[in-house]
Amino acid sequence: MQENYLAKWLNNELSGEELKTFKKSDEYATYMRILEASSKMEAPEFNVDQAFEKFKNATSTETPKVITLNPFKQFIRIAALILLMLSLSYIYLNTLDETYKTSLAERTEVSLPDNSEIVLNADSKISFSEKKWNQKRNVELEGEAFFKVAKGKKFTVSTADGVVSVLGTQFNVENREGFFEVTCYEGLVSVAYNNQDIKLPAGSSFMVIDGIVYEGNETVMSQPSWMNNESTFENIPLSYVFDELERQFDIVVKTKNVALDQRFTGSFSNTDLNLALESIRIPSQINYKLENDNVLFYAGNNP
């Protein structure tokens, strides 16, 4: 008999000879009865539809876990993100410099952390680091400002044209396009310009117009005239006077047949435009015409 012949017999894989021998054996009858009885056997009942329902319930009971867990995770994620953004922006804002700006025809006063004071003239901007103020008293300036510096460490004003440094004093710095002027009213001011170091005692000023240095101008004032709402000029080209007029009144100045390099000495009011225009017209011997926010200066009788 071959290997596993009982299994082969069930599968009708026995040879005729083998089958004959097997049928003659004593066990054959019992094997036949086993086959007969087992053919009537039945497994427990199984309902496919019910099983499918059970499966569907099993899958649906697992989904709520996901739904209930997710919003919380999502919430934590968003909360963490917001917290991160808040702390980052806090750090960023803290390191940012403090900046003050004036627009045309505007003036503002700024108190520094050490009680030094800065008055910003029209169309000017200063910035400084409040956090590092105790280590370094430095102000970046674009435009014109008057400084009353409290006594202490070195105080510097950085401009595009030069650096002004003092210990404790009152001074004015003006830095416009092509124009740089420092006037000292009290104490001693040091101006670094083009690798030169110029010491300005009280009552003197340092001025650079279009790259030409003018030194040793005297002033008897205790503060710049613009602090008293007046713009004062001493031997200044007319073009800078017009620039200042535009800044103080937020107007547009146009000229016709006017020599702009003509020097002007005098002052004009920063509050009364008609008065200011007259103050320029009379000494310069030019005429003007005012229409809304436009002023036209012209030489001769007709524009």
Binding site: E3, N4, L6, A7, L10, T30, Y31, R33, I34
Partner: peptide, 20 residues
């Protein structure tokens, strides 16, 4: 498949021996 044939063979053999 051979392993299954073996199990089937042994199953039938054991069943008969137990019954007889």
């Amino acid at each position: 498949v051979k392993a299954i044939e073996k199990r089937m063979h042994l199953a039938l053999k054991s069943l008969r021996e137990k019954i007889d």
